[in-house]
């Protein structure tokens, strides 16, 4: 499944980040904590420490709390796209954060990670992130390239 391949390739990419929270599986990422940490590394002027502090990182046994985190992350990314990049993702199916929080759904997580990737390849330090991708295995690079191209066709 292509969507799941995107998810697992982007998890491989996310593993290059020095994050405090575990980030090696869809289950690890389903509470949004590691993803929020990644965003605050990628674009610290936008995903600030006060923003990160609003992401709940303890007692996340109730999946609804995970979804609350994921909604804040998705909202933040969409605001970044609009305010910083001046784009909206017309026609890109937004990730179903309920499916990620409740079932660690890899396909939906793949969509969310695709949006995180888009922040990384457009941020001020994009050179660092793109070069990291270029040093990864060819098949992972190819999937990431396809994921970027899909987003590029949906930007307006």
């Amino acid at each position: 499944n292509e969507r799941e391949q995107i998810c697992y390739s982007l998890i491989t990419w996310l593993e290059t980040f020095p994050l405090q929270s575990p980030h090696s599986s869809p289950s690890d990422l389903s509470d949004g904590v590691a993803i929020a940490q990644a965003l605050s590394l990628i674009a610290p002027n936008f995903f600030t420490q006060p923003w990160l502090a609003k992401i709940k990182s303890e007692d996340l046994s109730n999946w609804r709390l995970k979804v609350t985190n994921l909604k804040k992350i998705l909202k933040g990314i969409l605001e970044y796209n609009l305010e910083y990049l001046g784009v909206t993702m017309q026609g890109f199916q937004m990730p179903d954060v309920n499916a990620i929080g409740e079932h660690s759904d890899a396909q939906e997580l793949g969509r969310l990670l695709q949006l995180v990737l888009n922040v990384a390849i457009n941020c001020d330090n994009k050179q660092e992130y793109i070069q990291t991708i270029m040093s990864m295995e060819e098949d992972v690079q190819q999937i990431i390239k396809n994921a970027i191209q899909e987003l590029m066709t949906k930007e307006a």
Partner: peptide, 27 residues
């Protein structure tokens, strides 16, 4: 000599793609 041009190999095409991203203006 039948060798593929660098830009036509998978590696070359990937490098071209990511280099084109690098050359885009930040932000």
């Amino acid at each position: 000599d039948g060798k593929p041009q660098a830009g036509n190999t998978t590696e070359g095409m990937l490098a071209n793609f990511f280099n084109s991203l690098l050359s885009k203006t930040p932000g």
